[in-house]
């Protein structure tokens, strides 16, 4: 038996929004530690690695580890039937071919449940090596979304150049070119508005804006995003999943392979 109850159900709705455009289907691997999902997009260029920690749920029961194969578009549609302030419970019997979602209104005066068929997925898992990145850039998630959106006007790719002075995002195309420079924040009152660069070595890498724009769908989960880069390795973009009190409930991490010169 697997059962997980999340009082702040909107977090699960936001998690689904953050992956449903990038992935068609994936397995939720449920264990005593929590619910994990790892999957690549169909072109094997980007990977999502997501974790919802068991202690982030108000109730969590997982008698034995199970893998729930899910059509993510279907799950996303069902979760749209939950109100933003609903409490969401996920339930699956061992060896079941279906998963149940229950939505309770805060006053408990409306309870709905939806059963969804599970899929048999033959998923391949990639080993992601522990990496000490040469640059880690933290910035407001809204700022990163805006940069990716704005530079998409100019081209398909962005060059991210991180030095001790700050970060520069550049794009070019037929109509011209554009650059956005972000300096490290000297003093900010609010931590979530800061730009912080932790750099051991300067790094310049090129990435597809199409994928970065998919990643920014996770911005509603977190006020800050971190970009971790080293030369010649995939970029890691991380949004932490925090509840209203700011306690960590997990993360959504995206990995994106770089583009190289022909």
């Amino acid at each position: 038996m697997f059962e997980a109850r999340l009082v702040e159900g909107s977090l699960l709705k936001k998690v689904m929004e953050s992956i449903k455009d990038l992935l068609n289907e994936a397995s939720w691997d449920c264990s005593g530690n929590g619910m994990c999902l790892q999957a690549m997009d169909s072109s094997h260029v980007a990977l999502v690695s997501l974790m919802l920690k068991s202690d982030g749920f108000e109730n969590y029961r997982c008698d034995r580890s199970i893998s729930l194969g899910i059509n993510l578009a279907s799950m996303s549609k069902i979760l749209k039937c939950a109100s933003n302030d609903d409490i969401i419970t996920i339930r699956a019997e061992d060896d079941a071919d279906a998963i149940t979602f229950m939505f309770e209104s805060p006053k408990q005066d409306r309870v709905s449940d939806y059963e969804m068929k599970l899929m048999n997925l033959d998923t391949e898992h990639l080993g992601i090596p522990d990496t000490e990145y040469a640059c880690v850039i933290k910035m407001p998630s809204g700022e990163f979304s805006r940069i990716c959106r704005d530079l998409s006007v100019l081209g398909d790719s962005v060059i991210i150049c991180c030095t001790k002075d700050g970060v520069r995002f550049s794009a070019k195309g037929d109509l011209g070119n554009g650059n956005i420079k972000l300096a490290q924040s000297a003093n900010v009152d609010k931590e979530e508005e800061a730009v912080v660069v932790d750099m051991r070595e300067a790094v310049t890498l090129t990435f597809s804006l199409r994928y970065l724009n998919f990643f920014t769908k996770a911005a509603p989960l977190s006020s800050q995003v971190s970009l971790s880069m080293s030369e010649d390795v995939p970029l890691m973009v991380e949004y932490k999943i925090n509840d209203k009190e700011g306690d960590s409930k997990g993360y959504v991490r995206y990995y994106l392979a770089p583009k190289i010169e022909d």
């Binding site: 690549m40 072109s43 094997h44 260029v45 980007a46 990977l47 391949e124 898992h125 990639l126 080993g127 992601i128 090596p129 790719s157 090129t206 597809s208 390795v233 995939p234 990995y255 392979a257 770089p258 583009k259 190289i260 010169e261 022909d262």
Partner: peptide, 14 residues
């Protein structure tokens, strides 16, 4: 022009 690399170039199967 740039070439998009695949993730399998960096990460191995487990």
């Amino acid at each position: 022009n740039n070439i998009q690399l695949k993730l399998s170039y960096f990460f191995g199967n487990t």
